[in-house]
Write a protein that binds this DNA or RNA. Sequence first.
DNA 1: ATGCCTTTAGC
DNA 2: CTAAAGGCA
Length: 491
Amino acid sequence: MASPSLLIHWFWGDLRLAHNHALSQAAQAAIESNKPLIAAYILDPDIEPLGGASRWWLHHSLKQLEKRIADLDGKLFFMKGPIQACFDTLISKNSLHTVSFNQRPEPRYAAAQQDIANSLRKRGIPVIEGPPNLMLPLEGFLNKQGQTFQVFTPFWKAALASSHLPFTGRESFKPNDARLDLLQTAFSLDSTINPIENSCPLDSLGLRPKIHWTAGLEASWLPGETGAMKLLESFAQSERLQHYSEQRDFPHLPGTSRLSAHLHFGEITPQQIWARAASEPYQRQLGWREFAHQLLHHFPHTQSHPLRSEFLHFPWRDDATGLKAWRRGETGYPIVDAGMRELWATGWMHNRVRMIVGSFLVKDLLLPWQSGAEWFWDTLVDADLANNTMGWQWISGCGADAAPYFRIFNPMLQSVKFDPDGEYIRKWCPELSLLPKEYIHQPWLTPPLILANSKVYIGKNYPSIILDHHEARERALMALKKSKQPASIEK
DNA sequence: ATGCCTTTAGC
DNA sequence: CTAAAGGCA
């Protein structure tokens, strides 16, 4: 009996069928040789720490991939880790032909990936590696002093001047011919679709929540390659791209592309986006993503510790009540609460509002950025270690491209500036929807009669402010000043 | 080295 | 308009 020829699309790889180097070539080869595409997707929950919203996304992305492979008369199997044990079983049944994966840029995965790839190769299994879903190489892109860039602007200037960025018209991704040959070999074997013994249905991967809390996510997103292309097309075709720099900061406008989760799960490449959305202010945002990955690659400790070591002993507060109020969107500051509620409802938050709620957590509440990063990790559909880490350290002032310490976002000023009519607030804090725009940014300053007419009862149907911003600002400045004093009193 | 730059606040 | 840190060329 001929053994089945299996191509394992590794769980770390990208979830693209059309553009993943290995899998798309496998699909092409399968079609051309008139043989079914057989693939398996392995999930190892111990290695892949997914947040709740990410699990939901991954489930639906895999579901779409399963369907697309079925449409090609192929089959996608699912297996649940530990990954090494999954491979052991496959090898012992002579079911594993080739392993293909796209590299993951996060340091922890990259190391594990190399270990497993080495061990597979030692056992005679061909391993095909595709590049991570980035534009710049993680190694060797350095400033003129030979150091990792720590400020975005010079980084971006250097990137634009480099040969790495795929400007429109330049060569796009080309599949590697050697990889293609290897896959052709895989599919020239006699392949029959036999069930894999230890495979399981997608539903058994445990990615779906036990309690149904995902209605808001379902209404907001279409995970998978098709959804990604739809978003990109609608963004690039409309005037949203042209007006990106003027509209991107207004959270009530659809001024952004909302492609972050698709990028994170590898359902679309930055190169595809770059080519389709050729406008510098927008492409610059792809640059921030590159910057974040460079930083995490070169400073892997930043996922848990600040890049700037003087923040190691920063006197963060411990305030479970404050943290809870922040998470629930019950701080009493409408723009902050609106953002936190958008996050909870849709698994996403507008970037401007991410900065505002982030600043509120670390500067006003004086809570550690890690506690904010954890909440974002669990609730964001685009939760990404590099972006999350850089964003939180940026707003805390303890990371790269740090703002001067005295730069503390003022939630009222930010609200007036970026949600002038309170449209965003009204959407996510409906109990404030009747408040005139003069008062919606600071409901506690509203004259009692107008409050009553607007059916706003502070402390009852909308929380009182949990702290005074101006006092909190002074407290933060003091804490920062103290922590910068060379001589520490303790120890 | 000196000037530039930074998703800002507050007077 | 200034405050003001610090990476970068």
